[in-house]
Design a protein around this nucleic acid. Sequence first.
DNA 1: CTTATGACTTTCA
DNA 2: CTGAAAGCCATAA
Length: 107
Amino acid sequence: MNFFDHIVKIVRKIPNGKVATYGQIAVLAGNPRAARTVGWALHQLEHEDLRVTPWHRVVNRQGRISTTCEEHTAAEQAALLKKEGIRVQYKDGNYYIELSKYLWKDQ
DNA sequence: CTTATGACTTTCA
DNA sequence: CTGAAAGCCATAA
């Protein structure tokens, strides 16, 4: 299985109302150091995959949204998260999430 | 094979 | 927690 598919598969496992970090997904994918690749994979996801993949539940280690994608801005991601009951804090142009409260505890 | 790139992470200050 | 610098990995060209 490609990392691409593997990563997507794992992201789909993230329960509603929870968030996961890129590094966490990288570990589950078998490559603890491939966090960057996780971000790259989500960025390259196709439209169809985005429909069934909760990419918005994936944030960096600091609980901050790091997307630079024009199509999926941090504002939109934050909106989706709020929609799922996740409290998102907005501070000086950046969105923060309380990982200690919403971080997905694997399985 | 080598170089460049990125939705990251860790370490140091 | 923030910010800067260096490290890591898979993919594309």
